[in-house]
Computed example of a mutant assay.
Amino acid sequence: MKINEEGINLKPRKKLWGTLLGMILAVTITAGCSSPQTQVEYPTKPIKVIVPLAAGGGADILARTVAKYSPLEQPMVVVNLPGGSTVIGTMEAYNSPADGYTLLCANPDAMMAVYLGGTMTTPAWKDMEPLATLVYDGNVVAVSKDSKFHTMQDVIDFAKKNPGKLTWGSAGSKGYLEQVSAEIWEKAGGLQIKYVPFDSTVTARTAAMGGHVDILFGAVSEVVPGARSGDLRPLAVSTAQRSGLLPDTPTLKELGIDIDTGLHRGFMAPPNTPKPVVDILERALKEVYDNPEFLKTIENDLYFEGQFVGAQDLKQLLEDRYPIHERLVKLIGAQK
């Protein structure tokens, strides 16, 4: 042990200085790694909401209703960009700056379907930032009030005896509704029914009511008005349980066609939108959903069934749904 002239042990002093130096370095490193929570001034200008379908359809109505009840300090401005089976509007939103000032009112299932069907070459559904969905919209098979078909079984029986003579219409080409419908006809006995694509369910609905196509396959929210006016006759819904909006219409499962599907309607932001902005938008959408007036409006006036799915759960939902659409695309390929 080394002792200086005053008789003090020097080795412990070195240990003491080493300990103090380590503490100083630790504090310095910790301070350098930490940072105050990022503060975001958002929004400071109007937010554009792109609807990739024609005005009057389910996505358009939802976007405008959310804009009406939005708690954000800046307005949400809805812009319709239909065409290309939703590709034009979707890619416009996809390629917009990732600053939260351009959003897409989206049906994630439809986005996956269009990509897998080959119409869209970019996996927008995978790259974009999911914010939330606010409604779940089942699908329904319907015919004109003047149709000779009064039940789903009538359609099946006629199609079996007359392959290729019936036509059915819905929104888009090689997209969600075409894929799901193909599964219905396949499970109903491999029926051959010609598909006629339209730019929206609204135009397909008009064609069906006018007798220009034999069968309409569309969202419940878009068929209910025609059903209640008596212009359309719903034959079956695609959801697991009967729709509260069409309580007298049987499910496809009741008829022996094992299918359960519908659309989660909501919003997405361009890829790499900052998380603080995503969080603000998700909270705003949840606030809209929690507004009793909003729920009353969508259920009583717009014929939607409310169902909120937040950003993280929506990511998982998309991952779970992707294999289903892969199978449906193969089914369409087998039929064409």
Rank of each mutant, 00 (worst) to 15 (best):
161 K>A: 11
173 S>F: 10
319 E>C: 06
105 C>G: 00
324 I>T: 14
327 R>V: 02
221 S>L: 07
222 E>K: 05
222 E>D: 06
29 I>V: 12
4 N>T: 01
48 K>F: 02
119 T>Y: 01
280 I>Q: 05
328 L>I: 13
70 S>E: 07
102 T>S: 06
16 L>E: 14
56 G>H: 02
55 A>G: 01
262 G>A: 03
206 T>N: 11
118 G>D: 02
102 T>K: 03
136 Y>W: 09
148 K>D: 09
253 K>G: 10
192 Q>K: 09
71 P>A: 10
261 T>E: 12
222 E>T: 05
129 E>L: 03
66 V>R: 00
299 E>I: 01
131 L>I: 13
3 I>H: 10
199 D>Y: 11
157 D>K: 14
331 L>G: 03
149 F>C: 02
36 P>Y: 13
293 E>I: 13
258 D>S: 13
290 D>W: 08
49 V>E: 03
8 I>A: 02
158 F>P: 11
89 G>R: 09
257 I>A: 12
305 E>C: 01
161 K>V: 09
290 D>P: 01
265 R>H: 08
196 V>R: 13
102 T>M: 05
64 R>M: 07
150 H>T: 14
248 D>H: 13
215 I>L: 00
20 L>E: 08
157 D>G: 11
231 D>G: 09
67 A>Q: 05
320 D>N: 12
77 V>T: 15
150 H>L: 11
114 V>M: 03
185 W>Q: 02
98 A>L: 11
295 L>F: 01
144 S>D: 10
280 I>G: 00
327 R>P: 00
12 P>S: 00
164 G>M: 12
234 P>A: 03
198 F>G: 01
126 K>Q: 13
215 I>E: 04
192 Q>T: 14
195 Y>D: 10
206 T>V: 15
210 G>H: 13
125 W>L: 00
291 N>T: 08
41 E>Y: 10
137 D>V: 04
10 L>W: 06
186 E>N: 10
30 T>A: 15
138 G>I: 07
200 S>I: 07
81 L>Q: 12
213 V>K: 02
19 T>K: 05
92 E>V: 06
73 E>M: 03
9 N>G: 07
249 T>I: 03
86 T>F: 08
279 D>H: 01
140 V>I: 06
103 L>A: 10
130 P>V: 04
182 A>M: 14
335 Q>P: 00
64 R>Q: 15
189 G>H: 03
216 L>H: 09
159 A>P: 08
178 E>D: 12
45 K>L: 00
197 P>V: 10
2 K>A: 08
200 S>M: 06
79 V>A: 00
151 T>H: 05
290 D>M: 12
139 N>M: 15
272 N>P: 02
171 A>M: 08
321 R>T: 10
282 E>L: 04
335 Q>T: 00
59 A>M: 06
188 A>G: 14
